[in-house]
Write a protein that binds this DNA or RNA. Sequence first.
RNA 1: UGGGGCGUGGCCAAGUGGUAAGGCGACGGACUCUGGAUCCGUUAUUCGGUGGUUCGAAUCCAUCCGCCCCAGCCA
Length: 565
Amino acid sequence: MPTDENAVSKDFIRDLIDEDIRIGRFGGRVHTRFPPEPNGYLHIGHAMSINLNFGIARDYNGKFNLRFDDTNPTKEEQEYVDSIMADIHWLGVDWEDRLFFASDYFGQLYEWAMQLIKAGKAYVCDLNADEMREYRGTLTEPGRDSPYRSRSIEENLDLFERMRKGEFADGSHTLRAKIDMTSPNVNLRDPVLYRILRATHHRTGDTWCIYPMYDYAHGQSDSIEGITHSICTLEFEDHRPLYDWCLDALGIYHPQQIEFARKALTYTVLSKRKLIELVRNNYVTGWDDPRMPTVSGLRRRGYTPEAVREFCARLGVSKANSIADFQQLEACVREDLNKRAVRVMVVLKPVKVVIDNYPEDQVEWIDADNNPEDPAAGTRKLPFSRELYVEADDYREDAPKGWFRMSPGREVRLKHAYYIKCHTAVKNDKGEIVELRCTYDPASAGGSTPDNRKVQGTLHWVSAAHAVNAVVRLYEQLFNKPNPDDVPPGGDYKDNLNPNSLIALDKAKAEPGLANLNGGERYQFMRQGYFCADTDSQSGKPVFNRTVTLKDTWGKTENKPAAKK
RNA sequence: UGGGGCGUGGCCAAGUGGUAAGGCGACGGACUCUGGAUCCGUUAUUCGGUGGUUCGAAUCCAUCCGCCCCAGCCA
């Protein structure tokens, strides 16, 4: 089945799967899963994992599960479960009827723990956290056996049962795997399988006071669900021997764990701790602040799921730590929105234009195409009148070299309408331009003249009498540096917060068709960028978030440091 | 200085012994009723370094260097 994304070469994971299929492992089945812990909102990094797992299931005609890894009730909340499901659906990913929770398996996991005890492969340990750390040894020194390591099976069974019944205090006992305290892999030094934790679980309530650890829960959950390829990130590579040990010790169906490298993104942070800090301490307005790299933030910013998916596909998968360029993400939205977004005219920083030779009370309704990239998008009518707004930045008294826009005496085209020429800039006491007096050429109706004369600049405009007042939020990167963690000793990533990451313009003038929006509508504001109506929009007072600017070769040229001749 | 990984252009990334894909970016130029879009060029004599094997090495061997992860009763 061909994918709907651009064809990218296969990655090392698909190569491994190809080989498994070739040798008939797993009976040729492919079954993946995405196992989020519901302790935060999904971000672009999770989107990569979802895309990978779901994409593989789709490409191999396999299945994809969503399973919440909810084994730590002290950090997990229903709000996160809900947001995660909404975000995954938004990404266009479907787990069909396969929504699972590790907590669904607590009963089975408990049974299996007793099986391990009976096989002499697990024991109850009375060491407290500090003692256990001491016994564990260090990276270069082996650990020592716990004094409780050789308890009888009967005693272990009894103790574990009593742990479950709540006879012991939190932290006083653990169930540990009996593996090897001298293993060079620290994860194999009798890892904890169960801990006592009196916390109300968002799904099982107070049914349990012991909870399984990730290493014990994850592989068995994969096994229960018949997962074939359990794809996770590099930091779990050291855990694979433990993943394998549990499954083998239990003698149950054994999936293959495969690790890949997560990617960072320039100008943002993806660590859960930092994201939560940004939200809790109000550096942003919430998880869905359009500056956040969360899926909900990208959505509110105006990104499309197609663009996010394409971004993931273009980056590919590897085992090398890397930092993806934010511009790559922006290129993906631009490409997608260029094809789909309806073009509209919105003046962000308006200045009044009065066309002296245009009849006072006349209004013409001009045809404008909605999307030159897509004729099927149709046309709409735009009112044109004697008084208009244009972008203040589009007028320069002293035009620099290469300037195409308005300046005294220079003729420009108003998109879809007429050629105009400015003859006077009216200023206030402070010397600020408040009005541009212009004349128009009636023969230029529709944007061209019989004599075919060329005008270099084409400006967007809005009829003053028909304009809709709008708020436009211009977003930039949340951080000033490609790597926000790049700070001098003693510094903090928050030192790199960009104070100009949000600039709200409340005097914008939009064409009349934009008066009533619900939020979520995406447009291209001609010559400026892609914008998305925000849910803060009210009737007659739309609010827009800038998704991304249009490429601006003039801005680049003009701002180029002198040198250029 | 224990164990596990990783090092290909500014950023991602193909490549698995036969003489360095692609995308993003950057830089030129064409075209244009969005300085948008589109188009067309340019952008690694070289694959972390050094030796070696081979007719031939980014790919095999040796050695060195650099970066990441692991000492939670987090995931």
